[in-house]
Nucleic acid binder design. Sequence first.
DNA 1: CTGAAAGCGCTTACAG
DNA 2: CTGAAAGCGCTTACAG
Lengths: 336, 336
Amino acid sequence: MTARPATLKDVAARTGVSFQTVSKVLKGSPVNVSEATRARVLDSARELGYVPNAVARGLATQSTSAIGIVAGDLADWALSQFVVGAEREARRRGHAVLITSARGEPDDAAACVRALLERRVDGIVAAAPQLEHDCELAQLLRAVPTVSIHHVPGGGVSLVGSDHRLTGRLATEHLVGLGHRRVATITGPPDRRVVSSRAHGYRSALEAAGIEPDPALVEAADWTPEGGYQATLRLLARAPDVTALFAQNDLMAMGALSALHRLGRAVPGDVAVAGCDDLPVVVHTVPALTTIHVPFAETGARAVSLLLEPGRRRPECVLLPVELVVRDSCGGGVAP
Amino acid sequence: MTARPATLKDVAARTGVSFQTVSKVLKGSPVNVSEATRARVLDSARELGYVPNAVARGLATQSTSAIGIVAGDLADWALSQFVVGAEREARRRGHAVLITSARGEPDDAAACVRALLERRVDGIVAAAPQLEHDCELAQLLRAVPTVSIHHVPGGGVSLVGSDHRLTGRLATEHLVGLGHRRVATITGPPDRRVVSSRAHGYRSALEAAGIEPDPALVEAADWTPEGGYQATLRLLARAPDVTALFAQNDLMAMGALSALHRLGRAVPGDVAVAGCDDLPVVVHTVPALTTIHVPFAETGARAVSLLLEPGRRRPECVLLPVELVVRDSCGGGVAP
DNA sequence: CTGAAAGCGCTTACAG
DNA sequence: CTGAAAGCGCTTACAG
């Protein structure tokens, strides 16, 4: 094992032709090569177990056929779905993907991007929230074609994502349609765009139903089940008359289910709960969670095709659709 | 943006030295270069925004400082934890990571490995269950240093993982210690090694307590919540006297909680449920799940350090410890 | 139809 | 202390 891999020259020597000729037939370019030599070359390549050297090719062509992903916390379920979609699409297009996962520390994301730039990736897909407020990082990213799922300060970068306002609106409309008037919400960290967009959707659905949004019914948390759990406890202590709850992601919604269970409040009997994301796992929470489906894998695929699409010129902004998935945590079907 | 990046020659020209000299100072090798020129070189490099070209370096040094990961389904939570740990360790050691996610189709994993070999990665970390039964794949992998979390037919590959027998034993002992005699188990697909190991642990714990394992109390599923849900339904229809249940992963345990809820069986009052993996989310299932903690991220980190550790010669086998985490789904604390 | 040259951006001995 | 040569494994015009 681990013997020196065969090179073009090895194949050439075995065939008795120049290595440039071997190069031509092996990359299948429609060049002028006689069928006879083509066949002989192919044979020796197979016999030698020739595996093309992509790094040499990359140097010669000035293109690595690789993209980089700079992710926030890869362990996040939504993000890993995104990566799956991105990897699938990249491979379909013959590109490799270099992955980096940036922890919270200040310059970690920048270090990731720099590593990717050294590797001369053809483009970068960014899925790191820190991007929204880090201008230096944003500047780094402009050195290479980039598509982000977060707004990048300073522009010049394509955006792809789902419609966050619609997400907030659909969930809230569903709750309101079921007759709820005291609808609380648990948001993510307030400085995030997705948070204000979903909150905007929440408020507009309330207002459309003639309900004045009540600031006392809004609690911020940190996207985690534990955060959702604590936020729910605070919320119900402050406003015991709440009958419905929209959590800005499924994990916090699960924390809410857990908190309500502990408080002895039945779901959906006493309090209806809606989440969003549609993690696979929420089909079997107790009770099964009504939520908004967000197409993470499709988003990843779309990000890559946007990045690699040949005709692409100026930065674009793509919004993918979301939809309500009714299960048990809000009670009955959709209102009329 | 996207201007041609500066090269060593650019920096050399601006400094007024040969590009080889620039190379020496820039890679910080402790070479003989006067402090004066060193400083000047560093200055021009900074002014030009020089970013070393890792692909050229890779060609010259015959080493890419990159490793590849071939993963099964990256969307799997445990696997993404593993990847996080691996990426962290790789970057700490100055290595990039190329990621590939193999779908189920027959030759997909092989295509992933081939892509990695073309890229000339320094080594591969394998986390793809298909490896256990695919000898061709295994053969491919032997072309480059590899560490796997699955047994690879034919040997020659290092293994790292957790102690699956212990996992099965700890969970079952806990249940038995609580006084249960009719302890069922939901396993993963029977052809997987981890499945037989955890089942072995389950049986040995039973036998140690003088309980004859009952084949009627074993159901196989597919690791998913839905699979666990259906398996639980089958199990309880067949053996209504079951009072405890050990699921071979947390997702299936969640499906079990959901099924028991639907059947109107209280957890842990009527049936105790234990899982394993310790997904972050199970802190807030209803009720909170008692489970076995499996150190996925540490496993990933260990796999990479095993791969990259200089002194490494012959294949090794590393088993990481697991431990019981008691929450609410089995009732009371640990038995005496 | 096939071959020889030049070049991609580096590193690594080897001279001066 | 610094420079010039050779080479890593390819691709891409350009000749024959």
